[in-house]
Design a protein around this nucleic acid. Structure first.
Lengths: 206, 206
DNA sequence: AGTTTGAGTGTACGTTCGTACACCGAAAAC
DNA sequence: GTTTTCGGTGTACGAACGTACACTCAAACT
């Protein structure tokens, strides 16, 4: 006996999560059947219930798991902060790297945010709001934003998050086309720079 | 006899499109069955094939239809252009109005863009790219962008479209909460103003 | 050593699915 | 007036669906 009971259960749970992530890649959670997942994992359909009450519950677990990845990304961004205005290039580089490494998670979030079961959609949008809030507090530490209202900071970080989500989605939409991706990334850089120029000149005219 | 054969067919076709739009509102095209649609319309399942080859083909028709609405919106924006920098307020007002009047279409696009069948996703993203391009040519006519490269114009309009799509999605996510919606709209205004400030100061520093 | 627990099994049900096929009946074409 | 066209019908099928229920059997507990 090399495996305890809990370990074995956890292993099956993981297999279910992975199978679901892979299977719904070309459609959506709402089109995913419990039987497909069970077949992919290699268990009998009813065994699914030993781990999740429903596909929706499975979805919520996947949301949690996915946002662990995303928070790791934000940590990377914070940690790598070079203090320069290479910040933009560095941050986008980290985004791109995480999108590639956690491709399935990013695709899951992008899809289910708009099309998942209601609870899943809400969970995702709640997490993204949190994300925006965290970015806002990071931005507040940057020089030049001292005079900004907290509303303006929130709105700016909303804009940045929106642009970065769109960039991630665009990258996911162009798999195996390095030239296209290069263009997307370059565009994202310019967009962030434009926003930054707007930010630096903000308040000076209003 | 008050109806020709073609008219009757068109009426059924419309009923199918409307039923599909309504039925997939809480899930997605990929989870929509031909039989549900047929039942909703009041025809027998096999009669569906008289109008569409598949649910996917139906989806493509819905994309076409939805983007007719969206182009109407762009026309409204162009027509109403007050020449002032009330342009932002005016444009956002038009966006909000269209989102409310074509709620189902906007929701369809937002959902299926990320989660629909492959062809539907591609069709939607192609149309959005077109949208960005049209906006770019509009922007080129604005004062102050004379010295801009066509790349920068394209990138700027991409940023604006992204922000407006996100705004529309946020509005759709907050139905029947006028206060929340007011905040979303106000934030969108500020975001556009920030971007505008960035645009006006662009090139002057790079 | 004996008992309990619980992940996974196997069968069995009623429902819904897409679609094949033969058919109908009135508008359209001749 | 006869024939053709074609939107819609009705039946019928095998497959997949969620889930209820009774089961096994090894690890975990006592």
């Amino acid at each position: 006996m090399t495996e305890t009971r809990g370990e074995r259960k956890e292993r099956t749970r993981r297999a279910i999560l992975d199978a679901a992530l892979a299977l719904c890649e070309e459609s959506s959670l709402v089109a995913l059947s419990l039987r497909q997942v069970a077949k992919e994992v290699g268990i009998v359909p009813t065994a699914f219930y030993r781990h999740f009450d429903s596909i929706e519950a499975l979805g919520l677990a996947l949301v949690d798991e996915s946002f662990v990845s995303l928070r790791a990304m934000l940590l990377d961004v914070r940690r790598s902060n070079p203090g320069f205005d290479h910040t933009i290039d560095s941050s986008i580089g980290i985004l791109v790297e995480h999108v590639h490494r956690q491709r399935a998670h990013f695709m899951f979030i992008a899809r289910e945010r708009a099309a998942g079961p209601a609870q899943v959609r809400e969970a995702i949008n709640r997490e993204i709001k949190l994300f925006e809030h965290e970015l806002a507090t990071d931005l507040a530490r940057l020089p030049g934003t001292a005079a900004w209202s907290s509303d303006d900071l929130r709105i700016l970080s909303g804009l940045i998050v929106t642009a970065m989500v769109a960039t991630a989605e665009a990258i996911l939409r162009s798999p195996g086309r390095p030239d296209v991706e290069k263009q997307i990334v370059e565009d994202a850089r310019v967009q962030l720079r434009m926003v930054l120029v707007g930010a630096l000149n903000w308040r000076s005219r209003s």
